[in-house]
Design a protein around this nucleic acid. Structure first.
Lengths: 195, 195, 195, 195
DNA sequence: CTGTAAGCGAGACGGTACGTCGAGTCTTCAG
DNA sequence: CTGAAGACTCGACGTACCGTCTCGCTTACAG
């Protein structure tokens, strides 16, 4: 994939990533061609193919660089507060027009196993792992039912955010994390129905 | 869709939808070309373009026809039972390899506003509306907190299913509905922490 | 070819021939489609295919109807005069913009043997035969060298007209027949060089 | 033709011209598609469209390359001999099955003004000019009537050859030039009729 | 005077080729 | 020896027509 070397031009790399982000935001992910990225970056097509296997990989790297801060989970001792902090970050990112390419990227990953791998391993996986670790400590601290599968908890919390992202039934609003956490932690059952 | 007539050939229509489903399942949505659908269906390309605006619209219609049963919500009086019934149907559908194209379709909709509209209006919307109606009656029956936004409840319940579908972190298993409903209705907070 | 009947609609036939002539004159022969002829004639495509085997055959018939008068050779006793009369008619016809489709028709016949047959048998052949007959009588009357092949004479006289038609190096002018006949009958050799 | 460069692949160019000649000879000009030329040449369609505006232009160039020798007129001092030399070459070329595409090309030029221009400027024109020059010198040498329009002489000599080519009333035989020159120079009038 | 069978207008159908776009590879030249 | 430029092969795009095939709908003659 990468023709080993440190002779790689940083200028080219950054121009490519920047062009990818811009085009992915405006004409959209599918409507963006490698050719267009190369032209806007003032770069030969070969320079892109030399370092990345596909358009998706370029965009993924570009987005990954801008998503750094959502990787870490704080630990204030209160799991709901900590989740809210991180989820607010995620919501802000996904609501940002600059990040609009992400949905298309997820779509493209459906038909491109290697892109799917890169997406899961590079972006989703580390966040899931970090979240899981924080949830485990919360469970030990008695802030979480201990009969629940933590991976299912993660799906319950983040699923709704991605649902809005992909189906665009309504925008991702800043208060989304608060609302999800309220529903998820308190449950949907009315207080007067302890069943 | 565009020309008007009852002169339309049913044979062609059905062959196209069947071919679309098959190809969408095996080589995958993005890897399927209109040309390939036409060839497998034994049909001229023009016949596809005459009735559908894009590959996505064809696949959408094909999938939509096979998803009929998930549109209705039963009403046994118990909201959790009824949700489980419908969500089991959804899970079975999305877990079915024949339906593998759906994820790609959602992806494609990210960059195609008109496809996105068709997806929301034709598939997602009606199911959301039916679900909402059932939730409203449950709320009135006192089986649901009445301080919750029902659209958020829907996102909470279905988000996790689509999360698995799109990120493929793990397969959609038959028990997914049961687990989601347990978490969502009982809440994540431990019983000993009434807060 | 023809589905025997006198039930044939004259209105349709004439509308088709007229449309063929018009389109063949303006967008040109190659640029005219059967579909366009049908539309302009206000006729179904099938009605064309019912009575003619190809676009070329339609145009041929349309042109043939307008070329009737060039079929006959007068016989005033002077071969040059008679040739001039007929050739003037041919030149007038081929120079007429309404007849512009003829060149394209000749072109199309190059790749369509059955059209070629129809062209030769229906248009060219009869005129060649009539011309040959007149030349024979001229030869017997001693107005023509009797060591010449009459078919070659015909080619010598008409070739130059078609040459201008097809290569468009310059237009077919009204005096073309006079000039050709002068050159051909008097010969190119200077009078002072009886060789 | 349109893009600029010496980066052009000679291999591709020659393969295309060769394929064009072959296909033009066998299935014929009209029956040959750009697609078929590309496939036989082992070349992408785009490579054809990059350098030529149409199928006709490709075939024209291919034929032009093989017709080089008919461009020059010898000058032995005797105009009839010199004309015969060149016209024999033309007849041989046009009678050659490898050149069968030429008739179709002339036909196609009838409906394509730019192809017509290329045909006249690239093939016909230069030969006409060369012939005219030789005729002029013959006229000065007293071997040709000096009251004749040389362009009409050219049409008189070459028209018959093209007449046979296009109307296929009979094949172009090797002796055609001799016969035409005999008729044209001696004239059609019987020697006993000096009129 | 009313079936019924033909020609008619219309236009959908299975196809082929069009001319264009972009993918990913290969080649040339400059720094 | 990387990087820009861009020509190359290839495959799909969406469109235009091809020639064939139903569809009703006149018409016109046969019972």
């Amino acid at each position: 994939m990468t023709p080993n070397s440190e002779r790689r031009s940083d200028r080219a790399r950054e121009a490519i990533l920047a062009a990818a982000l811009e085009l992915t935001a405006d004409p959209g992910f599918q409507a963006t061609s490698v050719e267009a990225i190369a032209k806007r970056a003032g770069v030969g097509k070969q320079t892109i193919y030399r370092w990345w296997p596909s358009k998706g990989a370029v965009v993924l790297e570009a987005l990954g660089e801008r998503a750094g801060q959502t990787l870490e989970f704080p630990d204030t001792g209160d799991i709901v507060t900590d989740l809210r902090t991180q989820m607010d970050g995620v919501a802000e990112l996904l609501g940002n027009p600059q990040f609009a390419g992400f949905a298309g990227l997820v779509g493209a990953a459906q038909s491109d196993p290697s892109l799917s791998r890169t997406l899961i391993d590079g972006i989703i996986g580390p966040r899931v792992a970090a979240c899981r670790k924080r949830l485990e400590s919360a469970q030990q601290a008695g802030q979480l039912r201990d009969d629940v599968d933590l991976d299912e908890v993660i799906e319950l919390l983040y699923g709704p955010i991605y649902y809005r992202l992909l189906f665009r039934t309504r925008p991702i609003t800043p208060d989304i994390a608060t609302h999800i956490l309220d529903l998820a932690f308190a449950g949907l059952r009315p207080p007067t129905d302890p069943r």
